[in-house]
Amino acid sequence: MTAPFPFVSVSGSPYERGRQHGAAVPDRVRRSARFYAGQLDRLGSRPGERERLIAEFSRGIAAFDEAYLEEMRGIADGAGLSLDAIIMINARTEIVAKARLLASRPIDEDEEEEMADGCTGAVILPERSATGGVIQGQNWDWQPDCAETAIVLRIRREDGPDLLTFVEAGGLGRHGMNAAGICVTGNYLRSDRDYCQEGVPLALVRRKALEQEHLALAIKAVATTPKACSTNMMLSQNYGFAIDFECAPDEAFPVYPQDGLIVHANHWISPAALAKLRDTGMTSSADSHYRDWRVRRLLDEPRRPLTREDLKAALFDDFLTPHSVCRPPRPGATGDLTASVAMILIEPALGIMEVAPMPALNRQFTRYSLDGDPVAVAIAA
């Protein structure tokens, strides 16, 4: 059986929270650091260039929120690593892209496919939900090695709502929910506006949204924070609202629910966005065009109120595998593997998140909570 993702619960000052995080899972933090340092190695990034690039991002992170840099410093000390290694984990998308530009190495189609942090996500609104609450879910598609680097992190905060996030060890945020009932998930997009400006690392934009007491402020964080590259982020709150933002670096395009659902994969769907920019993600995510169609179709089939198990069933879909919603490990053109590394289901009204590692190979979920300890969930049929 595939082991569940480790659960780490932290509290205290930003530095102390980070130190607890790093000390709890030092091996996973080190694996994360090695994994992303390896991406720079493959680009031929020299140590001096690497240090200058990370220092540039360090200054940007401090300007966005100094407490984030303190938390990263704590993670570094707890895991016995340099602060640079933790900054690399949290800004890995942007740092690798900037290193590629400095090396004057355009990305080829094979590399693009393997670098695409894919994903298929959905939100079920209360009018379609059997519980009368929001249900949000996501398949995180990335490289299978990251099944050994991810964790579920609970952060007890004195200055805002507690939060629960599925994240790579050493990271501050990715997919998750908070005690105010706000959920955030996200997935990969590309456009012709990418890497033309400086921006806040996407992981920290998601973390900022998860720290908010009010959905309006979470929306502001997602929609108005400058970014270096495109992304898609889904936001919901258990009071019964959800919205998707297709984000270019300098502009955000809202996508509203249809028939009580939002479904999104890795291509742009906003008419306003498509009128103003060019979707450049086709080479890495051609299957996106039927993945979101499949999930919506499967959620519409029951003709009854939907449950968390219905969303799991849709995200387990293997139509046209291995280029499917739920992806088994498969080699790309350059030999690296890609897969659905985790399936994440969130019910904010219940304060729970269920996560299964490598869902194409394993259907055992663990239930994580804002309030209690992790528990195993019956294996999905």
Rank of each mutant, 00 (worst) to 15 (best):
5 F>N: 01
5 F>Y: 14
6 P>Y: 04
7 F>L: 06
9 S>L: 10
12 G>D: 00
15 Y>A: 05
19 R>A: 13
29 V>G: 04
30 R>C: 09
34 R>A: 12
37 A>Q: 15
38 G>E: 06
38 G>D: 12
38 G>W: 08
41 D>T: 15
43 L>Y: 13
46 R>T: 15
49 E>V: 10
49 E>F: 07
49 E>M: 09
62 A>M: 13
63 A>R: 14
64 F>D: 05
67 A>W: 07
67 A>P: 00
82 S>P: 00
88 M>I: 11
89 I>S: 04
89 I>C: 07
91 A>P: 02
98 K>G: 00
108 D>A: 03
109 E>G: 12
118 G>V: 03
123 V>F: 07
129 S>Q: 12
130 A>N: 02
132 G>T: 09
134 V>H: 04
134 V>I: 15
153 L>I: 08
156 R>P: 00
162 D>V: 09
168 E>A: 10
171 G>R: 01
177 M>T: 07
180 A>K: 03
186 G>I: 01
187 N>M: 13
188 Y>R: 12
188 Y>T: 13
190 R>C: 06
194 D>F: 01
199 G>T: 08
203 A>P: 02
204 L>T: 02
212 Q>G: 02
212 Q>S: 10
220 K>R: 14
222 V>D: 04
238 N>Q: 11
241 F>C: 11
241 F>E: 11
242 A>E: 00
249 P>I: 00
265 A>L: 07
270 S>P: 06
274 L>Y: 01
276 K>L: 13
278 R>Q: 14
279 D>A: 02
282 M>T: 13
284 S>Y: 02
287 D>Y: 12
287 D>N: 14
291 R>M: 15
292 D>L: 12
293 W>S: 13
296 R>V: 07
296 R>P: 07
300 D>P: 06
304 R>A: 14
305 P>G: 08
305 P>H: 12
307 T>R: 06
314 A>K: 08
317 D>I: 02
324 S>T: 10
329 P>L: 03
335 G>K: 07
339 A>W: 01
339 A>L: 09
340 S>F: 06
343 M>I: 01
347 E>P: 05
348 P>W: 02
348 P>V: 12
349 A>V: 12
351 G>W: 04
355 V>D: 08
361 L>A: 13
367 R>H: 05
367 R>I: 08
368 Y>H: 02
381 A>P: 13
